[in-house]
């Protein structure tokens, strides 16, 4: 029986002869790396595309608007009929207001949760809480924007009667909630990778868990924690929908967080959802704002990259 089965199948020699279509095989083996390289270069082309697009259209914009008045102008009235003003500082001020409020919310809560999860929580608690944080990170920003507009703003208005419907405070807080899981989970990763022997050493010297956390684990994981915060700041700067829905569209160069603002991202959305004709100064202005935004986030990402690379402690 067993003998018969073997004879039914083609012999090994036959199989080899059948598949030794050598030339075709060699061709495939040579072509595949080239095709894969072309695919891999698309990600590089995307970056080049982004940078070129932004630079080319921004240069056209600067033919209409002098560079200096764009960089240092404190008034942004692109839709004014008589004398439109294109000074980006009000938009940067709006972005920074939201980002700073977000950081104030997210850093203490994010690092607090990271310490709790990494140093205090039991395995079971961690296994329950981490997926919930992932859910929080996966919620679309449009949903957060709706939440800011319909829940957080009315809630804050009960405590701050002067708060306008559109303001910097409410989207700032909600952006903070949005970046919180990112800080918590990246910082927790950094803290968990601190070896247990160091913890045990400190505990054996009579430290309490808090002292182990603050004097041993956090300093050892500091580069990872700082990198996570910088990455989160970059996310907050680029956040669009929350500020578009709840921030308003009044670019102002001041420090007021209770009134309507406009961020760089929200301006791009405002122009895109209206119908600014192709080729107008307003059309090109979204590229110049986009370019500024791109530079801000790029610098943040490079800083985060450098921190986590340079100060990574090896045990």
């Amino acid at each position: 029986m067993a003998q018969k089965q073997v004879t039914d199948q083609p012999s090994v020699q036959e199989l080899i002869a059948k598949s030794s279509n050598k030339k075709q095989k060699q061709l495939v083996e040579k072509l595949i790396p080239i095709i894969l390289f072309i695919i891999a270069s698309i990600s590089v082309l995307t970056t080049i595309g982004i940078v070129l697009t932004l630079i080319v259209e921004t240069i056209i914009f600067f033919k209409d608007i002098p560079v200096l008045s764009f960089l240092f102008g404190t008034e942004w009235y692109p839709f004014a009929n008589k004398e439109p003003a294109f000074g980006i500082l009000p938009l940067i001020a709006g972005t920074l207001k939201v980002t700073i409020i977000a950081v104030i919310v997210a850093v203490p809560f994010g690092i607090g949760s990271a310490i709790f999860l990494s140093e205090y929580a039991s395995d079971t608690t961690r296994r329950i809480i981490k997926p919930i944080l992932e859910v929080l990170a996966g919620i679309p920003t449009i949903v957060y924007g709706f939440f800011a507009l319909t829940f957080v703003t009315p809630l804050l208005q009960q405590f701050i009667p002067d708060l306008k419907i559109f303001n910097a405070l409410s989207p700032g807080i909600v952006v903070g909630i949005m970046i919180l899981p990112m800080i918590a989970s990246l910082s927790e990763d950094a803290m968990s990778s601190v070896p247990n022997s160091i913890r045990e050493g400190a505990l054996a010297m009579g430290s309490t868990k808090l002292e182990v956390a603050l004097k041993v684990v956090v300093p050892a994981a500091l580069s990872g924690i700082v990198a996570s915060v910088v990455l989160a700041i970059s996310r907050a700067i680029g956040e669009t929908m929350i500020v578009s829905l709840a921030g308003g569209s009044t670019p102002k160069f001041d420090f007021d967080v209770t009134g309507s603002i406009q961020t760089m991202t929200a301006y791009i959305v405002q122009v895109s959802s209206g119908d600014a004709g192709y080729g107008t100064t307003i059309y090109y202005s979204i590229y110049s704002v986009g370019f500024t935004l791109f530079l801000f986030t790029l610098v943040m990402n490079l800083i985060a990259h450098a921190i986590s690379k340079k100060y990574r402690e090896e045990y």
Binding site: T240, T297, N301, H305
Partner: peptide, 25 residues
Amino acid sequence: DFIRMNISNLAGVPSVVFGLLGLTI
């Protein structure tokens, strides 16, 4: 190395900027 570095930077580009790329290209 450059491709890897580029990918990690691309991940940090705000989505609205990708919109500008899509609009132009």
